[in-house]
Write a protein that binds this DNA or RNA. Structure first.
Lengths: 279, 279
DNA sequence: TTGACAAATGACTTATTAGTCATTATTATA
DNA sequence: TATAATAATGACTAATAAGTCATTTGTCAA
């Protein structure tokens, strides 16, 4: 497990610098100080490494954003928080964000395209629920169009700091985008993308994840981490999944405990979604 | 010459389908019904072909748009004409547009990056002059920011028909974007990109700038500004450059102090790069 | 018809890189 | 300590692709 993480970290650096195609396995293993053969003990192929990277970081980024949005009670701050946590995540994982944006349109690998599409959909889902919460009925006709505006603006501005190294006044950027979003949401009368278009564009998202799958994931993560608090929290949450005994407050508290551990972010996201649906 | 055009046409098709990297010369020549050697009679290398393609199509697209914009006398129609001719050109040369957008962020080849930047700048120039003509003084503070909004929106929506081959109601799309642009132009009060930022982005530095040059710049700026905090921060940063004594946290803080001063933006940018604080 | 010149060919060289596997080193166990 | 199990190695194979060049083919003026 440790070896796998080492490879992922080092590979990410090189990929961001040179691009995925231009980085041979040999260079990654040299940089890690291991042999080429050792790489293939951790990953079946170069593609598997790429997929693992995308999964790892997109899960972390999406769950960070989702958590922030769900835990901002004040609607006034909601948009700002959304933009802020998005750009924060992009900045924190800028090496990855670069790769993600770079390869977004350029991949030959089918599995990769599906992955990227999938996470793109999740992002759209977050944006949509945010718009609905903020503007409600008023944007019924324009909300799908708004999603594309927001995505376009984010893309344009994130390119600035990702590829031009410009130092970033993130507060100002977010303020500026909040204003723009509000403007577009309040005054747009001619949407381009309608509900029907949006449905059409929608690739069927992967079917709901089962409790069994979440439990399997927890068991996997338990092997990877050492921190006692997180470990015990996970064990309790697992039991709670099998047979719900804990009060909602305790369950929520346990989720808080594991929320910030890098290996637990995705599980936290799934569990939050799971309990949201249940009630 | 005829041969050269044949190769360019056929190569464009294959590039758009598979990506540039994934298309071998052999495949292009097979598709053309000529030999591999014949290719090298027309182009010195694969790179030369790629550059030739970009030049050819970007010249055509840019001049089409520029012509339409310059020949629209009625300001009411100007924005609509701009969007319409842009999307028309993208659609007409969709194979090329795909490649251009794909490779925009992903290129290894230095010459190619320079080319793409150059044409991107031309596009920004067209958009800027259009904004100035339409809104004049009213957008003095927000016009550079507006450019990035327009580019972001165009990108987001052109992706729809380029990569999802959604059927396109171009009239509706342009109407919709005209409304959005007018909204943003009329009501934006918090621009993110200022005149200074825009100037800065114009000259992306390639060659290393020496400490001495930065110090010279600081001395120059010191003469220009009066604010005590910014002044002292600059003096301290200058000493720190000559002989590093400050802790990273203090240096970072001083940079924060000067970051938003219009005359210090470029220096801040250089220093951030120098210390590699912000990536 | 011929010979000179240009155009075109494709087998070949060189280089790169993903992935394999027989061998060696290390660690755990009895 | 001896032995089995596991991890790690890197030389090797196979595949791909850019670019070259000796040879062939085509053209046309004399």
């Amino acid at each position: 497990m440790i070896k796998k993480q080492l490879i992922m970290e080092k590979a990410l650096e090189l990929f961001a610098q040179q691009g995925i195609e231009a980085t041979p396995i040999q260079q990654i293993t040299d940089y890690c100080g291991i042999s080429k053969g050792a790489f293939y003990l951790s990953f079946k192929s170069k593609d598997e490494l790429i997929i693992a990277l995308i999964d790892h970081f997109m899960k972390e980024i999406i769950s960070d954003i989702d958590y922030m949005v769900n835990n901002t009670k004040n609607d006034e701050e909601l948009l700002y928080t959304f933009y802020y946590s998005t750009f924060h995540a992009f900045h924190k994982h800028s090496d990855f964000a670069k790769i993600f944006i770079k390869e977004q349109t350029q991949s030959f690998n089918e599995e990769l395209i599906v992955k990227i599409h999938y996470y793109d959909r999740l992002m759209e889902g977050i944006i949509l629920s945010l718009i609905e919460r903020l503007y409600g009925e008023k944007v019924e006709r324009t909300k799908y169009d708004l999603i594309y505006c927001i995505k376009g603006l984010m893309n344009s501005y994130s390119g600035l700091f990702l590829f031009n190294n410009a130092p970033l006044n993130r507060e100002l950027l977010c303020q500026s985008l909040v204003e723009k979003t509000n403007l577009l949401a309040s005054h747009t009368t001619v949407p381009f993308i309608t509900h029907e278009d949006f449905q059409m564009l929608k690739h069927p998202i992967k079917e709901e994840i089962t409790i069994e799958q979440i439990i399997q994931m927890i068991e996997q993560v338990l092997k990877e981490i050492d921190e006692p608090i997180e470990k015990e929290s996970l064990i309790l949450l697992k039991q709670h999944l099998l047979e719900p005994t804990l009060s909602p407050a305790i369950a929520k508290g346990l989720l808080e405990n594991i929320r910030n551990h890098p290996h637990c972010k995705w599980i936290t996201y799934l569990l939050f979604r799971y309990y949201e649906i249940e009630k």
